[in-house]
Design a protein around this nucleic acid. Structure first.
Length: 260
DNA sequence: CTCGACTCCTGTTAGC
DNA sequence: TGCTAACAGGAGTCGA
């Protein structure tokens, strides 16, 4: 699924459209337009204009327009970005690798004949103009040890749920969070506020290292735990049968031996 | 404010 | 072989 690492690769891909004049806007799927946005509004905002900048906050991709509102793209669980027929990742976990134009929910065409497509089989993503960003926490790559400590605070919520709360830390999804906690040796069901200072520092270190390492490997699904995310999976480190639970509303795999 | 439960979407896959 | 039902999770909403 697209978590912050995938969206970061989408951002780099979308950067290749900066400066190119938009001549065509296909926003026929009304469900895909969010925040009360209509097809007419998004056509008016983009047609004849061009992007001047590309940004990312967590899982939200922002494309600034030369005049007018910023275009916000969310990819949900199964969304891909396709620019000029190219994608930035080969495989998307839980999505389909098929290349079906029926799944193009939002398309921008440029004067040079190229285009930008949001391809989302399950339609959990969406497009918005000037999406509110004040409800997003700090991007996970910018998280400091003190910031993490403040976010965990004295919360009784499960550690994993706290880390996936986009209003506190933006960008971490289910796969990244399981991988980070597995590497840090922390039980995802523990109360967030129960971590010692040493554990918070350890979590912070593994959090950043995991983002950098999996980013270099090519995505959130490239973690060491990933291949064992199945009902009969065993811990790659301990060999113990993995726990499969629902934590924070999401399927969670963890090692009962070394995650404490 | 905090936190869990519920709902939305639909392709894939396990199982009968 | 063909069908059904379970499953996946990002994000918004609602209520205790």
């Amino acid at each position: 699924m697209p978590e912050m690492l995938e969206v970061e690769s989408y951002r780099r891909l979308a950067a290749t459209t900066v400066g190119r004049t938009i001549t065509r806007v296909d926003a026929a799927d009304a469900w895909f337009l969010k925040g009360g946005l209509t097809a007419d509004q998004v056509v008016d905002a983009l047609k004849g204009h061009h992007f001047v900048g590309d940004r990312r906050i967590g899982k939200l991709l922002l494309l600034d327009v030369d005049q007018g509102p910023t275009l916000g793209l969310r990819f949900g669980m199964t969304g891909r970005l396709v620019v000029d027929g190219r994608t930035s990742i080969d495989h998307l976990e839980y999505s389909s690798d098929r290349d079906d134009p029926v799944w193009d929910r939002f398309v921008l065409g440029f004067t040079d004949g190229g285009d930008l497509r949001m391809r989302d089989p399950r339609r959990l993503g969406g497009v918005e103009l000037d999406p509110p960003t004040d409800r997003l926490g700090v991007d996970a790559l910018d998280l400091t040890p003190a910031g993490l400590r403040a976010i965990l605070g004295t919360s009784e919520a499960p550690l994993k749920a706290r880390l996936m709360d986009q209003a506190r830390v933006a960008g971490l999804g289910n796969l990244l969070t399981d991988e980070i906690l597995w590497r840090a040796g922390l039980d995802p069901s523990r109360a967030a506020g129960s971590l010692s200072a040493v554990e918070v520092r350890r979590l912070h270190r593994h959090l950043l290292a995991t983002l950098h390492e999996l980013g270099a490997r090519g995505g959130s699904h490239m973690g060491d735990l990933q291949i064992m995310r199945s009902r009969d999976g065993v811990c790659p480190r301990e060999g113990a049968a993995l726990l499969r639970r629902t934590i924070g509303g999401r399927t969670t795999y963890s090692c009962p031996v070394h995650q404490r």
